[in-house]
């Protein structure tokens, strides 16, 4: 039960019809915001008000609303997901704000993330990078025995840290260079650490970096802003591991042509 008073907030929300139109910040006032609401619920309240007035509701991305799907985005007061430690926008609660606060809400900004409408951006560039190598190849059939390949606990832990990436794109949005190195590094690193993934590691590193570069993402200059805003707390150590994997692959990986070898 809420013990605190409901709040009135002043919002400045980025409104943009589509990627080719010009956008601008528009002022809104939402009343009766409970401190127990999530940030997204607060926008739901605003949208209800807008719909009732016959206005166009604010478009924004959201899905699971429990901090795991990576769908919610938004720059809240200039910070991806509001800039709270290990928190996605849907897990930001209104108790973090005070009555009368002004909150600026913008979409994730990067050339690789074109605006679809208002706060919704097209993050399919992340999927394209993943499709270029963020997987392992395995035979289907019966589930393999869980303990047939042993993985040392510290290695498994580190791989799991990287696997925590939900692909939300906060790293790209908060990077002053619009670089996608953290989410790509997390995937390359996670799979390179594990025996199942290390087999294809060189090819993965080459293909993913190649795709990343061609999609208009920027280059890493080690600001580590991504690490500071990642809702899953992923470290730039994983970028370093990707850099190693990439270096190794660029100079040693050789794919045999069909005409070569026995067979």
């Amino acid at each position: 039960m809420s013990s605190a008073q409901n709040m009135t907030l002043n919002l400045k929300i980025w409104r943009q019809n589509n990627n080719s139109s010009e956008g601008k910040l528009v002022d809104y006032r939402v009343e009766n915001v409970s401190p127990d609401m999530s940030f997204l619920e607060m926008i739901d309240v605003l949208n209800n008000q807008l719909v009732r007035k016959g206005e166009d509701p604010v478009a924004f991305d959201h899905d699971c609303r429990e901090g795991i799907c990576g769908m919610c985005s938004m720059m809240i007061n200039g910070k991806a997901h509001g800039g709270y430690k290990n928190t996605t926008t849907c897990q930001v609660h209104m108790r973090l704000y005070k009555d009368g606060d002004t909150i600026v809400i913008e979409p994730f900004r990067a050339a690789a993330f074109p605006v679809v409408k208002d706060l919704a951006v097209d993050r399919s560039a992340i999927d394209k990078v993943m499709a270029a190598g963020g997987y392992i190849s395995a035979n289907t059939g019966n589930a393999p025995d869980a303990n047939s390949i042993l993985i040392p606990k510290p290695v498994a832990e580190e791989a799991m840290d990287a696997a925590a990436c939900i692909g939300c794109g906060a790293c790209v949005a908060s990077c002053p260079n619009g670089s996608g190195m953290l989410f790509m590094g997390a995937k390359v690193s996670q799979l390179a650490l594990l025996p199942q993934g290390s087999v294809e590691s060189p090819k993965r590193a080459l293909n993913m970096v190649y795709t990343h570069d061609n999609l208009g993402f920027g280059n890493c200059t080690t600001h580590a802003e991504c690490e500071a805003t990642c809702p899953k707390g992923i470290s730039i150590e994983h970028i370093a591991r990707m850099n190693r994997e990439y270096l190794k692959a660029a100079f040693t990986y050789h794919e045999k042509k069909r005409s070569e070898g026995a067979g």
Binding site: A111, P176, N177, G218, A224
Partner: peptide
């Protein structure tokens, strides 16, 4: 990198990263 950030350049020196 400037091009990759697009039209809306962000505040560079946040002190977090």
């Amino acid at each position: 990198n400037k091009k990759a950030k697009g039209k809306y350049q962000m505040k560079k020196c946040t002190g977090r990263g």
